[in-house]
Simulated assay, not measured.
Amino acid sequence: MVAAVARNGVIGNGPDIPWRVPGEQRAFKELTMGHTLVMGRTTYESIGRPLPGRTTIVLTRDPAWSAGPSGEGVLVAHDLDAALALAATLPGDVMVVGGAQVYAAALPLATEQVLSEIPLEPEGDVLYPAYDAAAWLESSRDVFDGYERVRLVRAADRL
């Protein structure tokens, strides 16, 4: 799972990210390039297009939804199990990239979280799911101007 999370747990305000941190989105691009991204429909629609150099699987309950003409190559799944099964057949790692409902559904299955910790407390109505910190071990932390990127691995996976 990959997310940028404010100190108060906010990851969005409606379809928008309530901050601009120079370099953080570039780091997201570098981290996810060449991999398969699983995201919810609202997240996809807020981006407005597939991200170049990555395979995109959009999770939606709407059986008639399609990415439209700008979404050539976007794959669609109607539940998390189907999205993960499809992603397992594709190149690269599987990276869940939002939104809140998808993060919450995927968290019990996740073995790793890569979180950009944003030292702000913006208003927002989209939150990253709470998780038991004791179940995760910090494997690395990189400090950048305006954020820290922390990599967490599930404690049982580290043994």
Rank of each mutant, 00 (worst) to 15 (best):
S66G: 06
I47F: 09
I11G: 00
E123T: 08
E30K: 09
E30F: 09
L75E: 08
L90K: 11
G99P: 14
R41G: 01
R151C: 12
P122G: 07
G23N: 10
P63G: 08
R26P: 06
G68M: 01
G9P: 00
W65Y: 06
A77H: 05
L37V: 04
G23A: 13
A64F: 06
L75K: 11
R41E: 12
E138V: 15
E123I: 05
S66L: 13
P52K: 08
L107T: 11
A85T: 15
R26Y: 14
F28A: 04
G14V: 00
T56L: 09
I118S: 01
E30R: 13
D79L: 09
P18I: 01
S116N: 12
P129F: 00
V74Y: 02
D145L: 08
N13G: 07
A135T: 15
L120V: 08
V2N: 12
L159K: 06
P15E: 08
Y131L: 10
L120D: 12
L84N: 11
E148V: 15
A100I: 05
R154G: 06
G146R: 02
G12F: 02
D81L: 02
M95K: 09
V96R: 03
V94I: 15
A64P: 02
V10I: 07
V114W: 14
V5T: 03
V38C: 08
R49S: 08
S46H: 03
G98C: 06
V21E: 07
V143D: 15
Q113W: 13
A104T: 07
D132I: 07
L152Y: 05
Y103V: 02
P108H: 03
E121D: 13
A104C: 10
V74F: 05
S140Q: 08
P15M: 00
E72K: 10
